[in-house]
Amino acid sequence: MKIKPNIAVSDSGFVFNPDTGESFTVNPIGVDIINYLKDNKNTGEISTQIRQKYNVEQPTFEKDFDDFVGLMLNYSLVIND
């Protein structure tokens, strides 16, 4: 799964999709995840990075991550490989 190349996220958490004209807001951990996705990190790498920064267990994060990415897929912000 990859984030679409023209999707940008600002530090304040504003996401704009130039293809659809839709805008979104994300919270700080969401900003982190989108930036990791832009750096082409895979799920395992992202999970490791997040768990270094935030106080969270792997199963909890991975469940929330799947949900988050599922929504991004739904909003056409990411594409499946």
């Binding site: 951990i29 969401g30 988050f68």
Partner: peptide, 10 residues
């Protein structure tokens, strides 16, 4: 402190 990632459409 962990908070789940959130994305909201405006």
């Amino acid at each position: 402190r962990y908070e789940r990632p959130l994305i909201k459409r405006l």
